[in-house]
């Protein structure tokens, strides 16, 4: 589906992502990030008594709260306008957003027939460096569920109502870490209410 103009656009986005990462982003040791996230998850396990469904929800909510704010930070750094189609959105998320915040470039795969859903395959997830899940968590915990919340919140602020969820996770013994993003609808911009 990608024409040469599309390829050019992808390249521009990639260059933009790398440029912003190199020059406009203050960086911090990724292991501190990993360790902090680890204590958050283990504190949640304690607080919710190992009810992993609740923990997944809580991580999602935390991610959502991060997402609605991180989008402003993202736009301030990259000055990107709203995307014209979902294809472009996927490229922006993968090549710019993940690169600017996590220094990752997940691969885009598994486009649905109607072009409204795609998967992100994350290799080398910084949150799960040196993490090993216990057996009971392996069955129901999505360790990096915070990513789903962040993407949902951020996309909602640019008027894209999406469902984001994990499909597979290396920590659970699967082959790869895969995130699925499905567009439900494009939210309409509000218009002022007409008073009499």
């Amino acid at each position: 589906m990608s024409s040469s103009a599309g390829q050019q656009q992808i390249k521009t986005l990639k260059v933009l992502g790398e440029d912003v990462w190199k020059n406009k982003v203050e960086k911090i040791n990724s292991e501190l990030f990993t360790l902090t996230y680890g204590t958050i998850v283990s504190q949640l396990c304690q607080d919710y008594d190992r009810d992993f469904e609740k923990i997944n929800d809580e991580l999602y909510k935390m991610g959502y709260n991060i997402g609605v704010r991180i989008i402003e930070d993202f736009l301030a750094r990259t000055a990107l306008p709203r995307c014209t189609d979902f294809n472009t959105t996927s490229e922006v998320i993968s090549k710019v957003a993940f690169k600017v915040f996590l220094n990752l470039t997940p691969t885009i795969a598994n486009w649905s027939q109607s072009n409204d859903a795609f998967s992100l395959i994350i290799s080398d997830n910084p949150l799960s460096d040196f993490v090993e899940l216990p057996i009971d968590a392996m069955k129901s915990l999505w360790y990096s569920n915070v990513y789903c919340g962040v993407l949902k919140g951020a996309l909602e602020m640019v008027q894209l109502d999406c469902d984001v969820s994990f499909v597979s996770d290396i920590l659970r013994g699967d082959n790869q870490t895969e995130l699925r993003i499905k567009l439900n609808k494009v939210l309409k911009d509000e218009i002022p209410v007409i008073e009499d």
Binding site: E26, K27, L32, I70, F101, L102, N103
Partner: peptide, 10 residues
């Protein structure tokens, strides 16, 4: 490996 300060701050 590094991540952005924003991610850590959030």
């Amino acid at each position: 490996k590094e991540v952005s300060l924003s991610s850590m701050a959030f």
